[in-house]
C-alpha cells in the first residue's frame, strides 16, 4: 500500500514522569553523546537505544523529561534519530532544550489508541501523527510561532547564526 510506505517510523510508548536521569544517566555524563545515548532510557527499557531507528517516534504520557536541566536528555534522543516526542505534557526545561536542539516536541490532547510498535509518520507541517490503514491521523497541539521558527531553522544555534548574519548585513548596508 502506497500510503503505508510513507509511514517510516514506529511508536515507542512510555508512561508518565519519564525523568532526565532515565534519558541521560548521570554516571555517563562525562563521556560524549554517543556513549551517553547508548544508555538512553535503559532503566525503563533496556533495548531502547539498540532498537530505535531514524524516523521512530517516542510517545509518552504526562511530564516527559522531568528533572535535571541537562540537555543531553534531548540530545540523546536526537542522536538516536528519533523524529520527535509526542506527549500529553512535558517538563518545561526539557521542552525548551529539545526545541533549542531542533528535536520536535509536541503535546497531544489525547494519545488515542496508539500502540507500541505501530507504524506512523510524524507530520510536522500539518501537526499530526499519520497512521496506517483506516485509522484517522492523531491531531497534535499547534506550536507557538516563535518555536515554529526555531524548529524550522534547526534549533537555537542555527537560528542565532541567521539572526547575526542578518544584523551584520544590515550594518554593512548602512
Amino acid at each position: 500500500m502506497s500510503a503505508d510506505k510513507s509511514l517510516s517510523g514506529r511508536v515507542f510508548l512510555f508512561g508518565d514522569d519519564i525523568d532526565t536521569d532515565q534519558l541521560a544517566p548521570g554516571q555517563y555524563m562525562k563521556g560524549g553523546i554517543a556513549a551517553l545515548a547508548a544508555h538512553c532510557l535503559e532503566g525503563v527499557r533496556p533495548d531502547f537505544a539498540a532498537s530505535v531507528a531514524p524516523g521512530d517516534v517516542v510517545v509518552a504520557g504526562r511530564n516527559f523529561g522531568m528533572g535535571s536541566s541537562r540537555e543531553q536528555a534531548a540530545e540523546a534522543l536526537k542522536h538516536l534519530g528519533v523524529a520527535g516526542v509526542v506527549a500529553l505534557s512535558f517538563a518545561g526545561i526539557f521542552y525548551r532544550n529539545a526545541i533549542n536542539l531542533g528535536l520536535p516536541v509536541l503535546t497531544a490532547p489525547s494519545l488515542a489508541d496508539l500502540t507500541e510498535g505501530e507504524r506512523v509518520h510524524l507530520d510536522l507541517d500539518n501537526g499530526r501523527i499519520e497512521r496506517a490503514g483506516e485509522k484517522p491521523a492523531l491531531p497534535l497541539d499547534p506550536l507557538p510561532d516563535n518555536l515554529k521558527a526555531l524548529l524550522a531553522d534547526g534549533g537555537l544555534v542555527p537560528h542565532l547564526k541567521k539572526r547575526f548574519a542578518q544584523e551584520r548585513q544590515k550594518e554593512q548596508g548602512r
Partner: peptide, 25 residues
C-alpha cells in the same frame, strides 16, 4: 544552567533553569 535554579526565587528574583544551548544563547 541548572534545574534547581528556582532557588533564587526565595530572594524575590525571577530565576529559572535552562539547558546549555539556551544558556549559550
Amino acid at each position: 544552567g541548572d534545574s534547581h535554579s528556582p532557588t533564587g526565587g526565595a530572594f524575590g528574583a525571577y530565576m529559572f533553569g535552562v539547558g546549555a544551548t539556551e544558556m549559550a544563547g
